[in-house]
Simulated scan of single mutants.
Amino acid sequence: MRQLIGADPGTPGGPGTLEWLAEAYAYPDGGRWLRANMVTSLDGAARLDGLSEGLSGEADKRIFGVLRALCDVVLVGAETVRAEGYRPGRARAEFAERRAAAGQLPAPVIAVVTRSLDLDLSAPLFTEPLVPTVVVTTVDAPPDRLARTAERADVITAGTGSVDLPRAVAALTERGWRRQLSEGGPRLLGQLAAEGLLDELCLSVAPLVTAGDSPRIVNGPQIPHVRPMRLVSLIEQKGFLFTRYLRATDPDRSPNDHDLTGDAS
């Protein structure tokens, strides 16, 4: 694993170790920070054969695990939960001391965003979580489904007709979960970007050309105001590129944020 752009954390063991990655992707101190982690092919596909798994590789999965281990809560859309067979967040011994020192739960909370509450409540995500799974839905969600869901998950209601993401993110933050991670899917990420909630994008680029009709990593109506981002880190392994982009208009909030060009655009 090679750091091509950005500061080397300089931890023992060098690039690619868990300690090195944990420092390279450390959350900034202070308030709420929402990062997204996505993977894409060279030609922009967010999925291969319907799943992101087909685009992933060893290093991508390693970084995926580190990003989860660093966050308080994973925000994910119900469609992605169903398609990818989501399981509960797990405690990792390598990060136990770090999480305890930061006042975090042993494992990240999984927060599922759904308007319809079309969820398999018998799945391990709801029957075997180390920390309770959260479901974020609307105030006017179907009452019978809402009651059943509340028996298996911690329910947050935000918005009528569709989930009010600013209110939902604020509710998660109020619970002390300020280190937030979205794993998509593309539709949820599009909504988060449109609402101006996205602080950081960690994008893995797989050395694959797939064609097909897979959606982009951000999918939905065009954002009214284009969100400029700036590259702060680039890591390479076996042809995979692992990028970090921060909001170009934000002040320097991240300890690993280095202005590489001097151009905010």
Rank of each mutant, 00 (worst) to 15 (best):
P221G: 03
G89H: 08
D259W: 10
A93S: 13
L197D: 04
T210F: 01
R87F: 01
E200H: 07
D118Y: 00
E151A: 14
L234V: 12
P129I: 01
T80D: 03
G31E: 07
R175Y: 03
V113P: 09
R115T: 15
P221R: 04
R175N: 04
L189F: 03
P251T: 05
Y86L: 13
I5W: 09
I156G: 09
S214Y: 03
P132K: 03
D257E: 15
A36T: 13
A147H: 12
N219D: 15
R90A: 11
L201M: 14
R178N: 08
T160N: 11
L125Y: 01
P12F: 00
Y86E: 12
R178W: 06
S116H: 13
T249Q: 13
G103L: 11
P224I: 10
R167K: 13
S204E: 02
V109R: 14
S214R: 10
V218H: 07
E151K: 14
P106E: 04
A107C: 09
P124D: 01
V226S: 13
S233E: 13
E151G: 05
R178V: 13
D252F: 02
A83C: 05
S233V: 00
R99C: 09
L208K: 14
F64C: 04
V135H: 01
P142I: 10
G262Y: 10
S41P: 09
R35I: 04
A100Q: 15
Q237C: 02
I235V: 14
R68G: 12
G161P: 11
T11D: 04
E97N: 04
E128C: 05
L105R: 14
A147D: 15
D252S: 11
L241P: 05
E19C: 02
A91I: 06
S265I: 12
L198H: 03
K238H: 11
Q104P: 09
P166C: 02
Y86N: 11
P124N: 04
I156D: 07
D72T: 08
S265D: 15
V205D: 01
F126H: 09
V81Y: 05
T17Q: 05
W177E: 08
L48I: 06
V66C: 07
D252P: 07
V73D: 07
L55N: 00
I235T: 15
V134E: 02
D8S: 13
A264C: 09
A168F: 02
G31W: 02
L192W: 01
P12L: 05
I217H: 03
T114H: 04
L51R: 15
I156E: 08
E97T: 14
L197M: 11
R148W: 00
W20R: 06
P186W: 02
A170M: 06
G212S: 08
R47Y: 01
S41M: 08
I110D: 00
E195D: 15
L119Y: 01
G161S: 12
D250N: 12
